[in-house]
Structure formats: C-alpha cells, structure tokens
Design a protein around this nucleic acid. Sequence first.
DNA 1: AACGGTTATTCCCTGCTGTATATTACGCCC
DNA 2: GGGCGTAATATACAGCAGGGAATAACCGTT
Lengths: 136, 136
Amino acid sequence: MTNAVRKKTAGKNPPERTAPNISYTVEGHIWIEGKEGTFLGVGRITLLERIKEFGSITRAAKSINMSYRKAWELVESMNRQAYSPLVTASAGGRNGGGATVTEAGQQAIAAFRRLDEGFRRFREDMAQKIAGPVKR
Amino acid sequence: MTNAVRKKTAGKNPPERTAPNISYTVEGHIWIEGKEGTFLGVGRITLLERIKEFGSITRAAKSINMSYRKAWELVESMNRQAYSPLVTASAGGRNGGGATVTEAGQQAIAAFRRLDEGFRRFREDMAQKIAGPVKR
DNA sequence: AACGGTTATTCCCTGCTGTATATTACGCCC
DNA sequence: GGGCGTAATATACAGCAGGGAATAACCGTT
C-alpha cells in the first residue's frame, strides 16, 4: 500500500503546493434522526453510558467534560423523541437523587453501538477501494 | 416559570413526553481526510462540480450561496492536500480569468460520488436493521 | 428542622465561524 | 492604454452555539 516517492524533480520546487507522500482515511459521523433532528449519536450514547455508570447526570457530564446544561438538553431531546424515556431522573432523596438509564435506554445503547461498529467496518472497506482512484 | 403539570388523572395522557408513532432514519456525513483534516466532503465536491460547470470560483460560490472567501479556502485546502492540484485558476485574461477543474479533480469528484452513493445504500440497509431494536 | 447533593432552569458572556466589504493584482480585448 | 471581470487577500462585523454561574426545587438523612 506504500506508494513510490517521486524524489527526483527537475528545477526548483515551488512553495510545496502538493505533498509527496500522502495517506487518506475515510472518516464520518452517523446518527439516528427523529422528529426534531438528531435522536442518537456518539455523544448522546456516550452520555447514556456514563449516566448508567454513575447514576447521575451531573457526574456523567463532568466525566466527559460536558456542561450539565448541555447534558440535560441532550437527555431531554432523547426522551422527547423516544417511544419511552431512555433516562429517568429524580431530584432530592437519597444522595440528592440521581438518574437511571431505562431498559429502553440500554437497548438504544446496544443498537447504536452495533450500528457504529458496522459503520467503522464500512469506512475501512471504503478506504481500501478509494486508495486507487484518489492517488496519483 | 411554568411548572410541570402534575396530573393525578388516570385516564388522561400526560403532556406527551413520548410520541405514539415514530419513524427513524439513519443519517450521516462522510469525508476523506488528509493531513490537515477534511480533504473531500460533500460541500467541497459540490463546489468542484460547480467550478467545472461555470469555469469560475466566484460564480460557483454564488450558485451555492457560499462566500468567495469560503470557496477559495476550500479550493486551497484541497489543492494543498492532493497529490496534484484539483483546481487551477488564473486572474486576468479572457473574461477576467477563471478556474478549471483538472483531470485529477474530475477523478476526485467521481471517486467521492461513488463513495457517497455506497454510504447512502449503507444507511438505508442499516435503517431496516435498526427499526426492530429501537422501537418499543 | 437543617443538611446535602442532585435535578431543573434562567441569564450573561465569550469564542468561533462565516459573511460582508474593500482593496489590489492580473491579463486579454477593444 | 483603458476597461472589464476575475483571482487573491486583508479587515471589520454579526450571529449563534456552548460554557459557566447563579438560583430554585426536591427529598431522604441526620
């Protein structure tokens, strides 16, 4: 997959408008879209996983350097668009309350992770096929 | 200000936190990445296609409501990251000059459109598989 | 009844991204 | 040479998404 390096050039090189040795990767984002736009994406799913881990929106948000405001907005958006809420939360109470990822939420996590893994494989396959036409 | 309405009712539906009939789609973006980030994406490829059509960066940019500055930056970024320039431009001259999509540029367009079409099919396939686990 | 940690909500403010504008350089055509 | 429409480049402006702080409500625990 390595490519030949053109090293012998006649004359002087202009300010390097092209690079001699390049490798390309196929990158991308994928998400599940509902009525109001994004329903599930990598950020939202990661947030769900952390909420499940910590039992708290606040701590989940901090663990991924996300503001509570943003985290709360994402949870609200997901709950609005889901058939049944993915996260249930309660203020006050034992340890001040907390948040729980519902069964539906855990299914959403699993489904999206499968999707995202399939996407990763797709991108790898495409990177191979692309190599030819794009180079040279 | 508005407090959450706590209904003690048994028969009435709560303020519609969930939707009864939902359809989801799998959406996404895909791009080819080089040394400085994005190399080819939908916006850049569309720009290339318009440049090919009009022979001018200015008119191409206007046709997609893009500022000339932005369009020029994209062209520069593509040319820097490609093995050979995808667009060549000249000021002055007949009709003030213009821009041309090179052979490499046309190959880039074709390669990316193939990739994007494959991605579209991938998303459609995934939307089918996803339907089950996400609903209900 | 006070405490503590969380959810829920509002407001302000900054940083970033892109837009709009202005200016210069360029080279064919009349 | 003057004109024209483009490329190329710099500067100032606007809009908005996100962050952070501040506040209130909540409820088991002590």
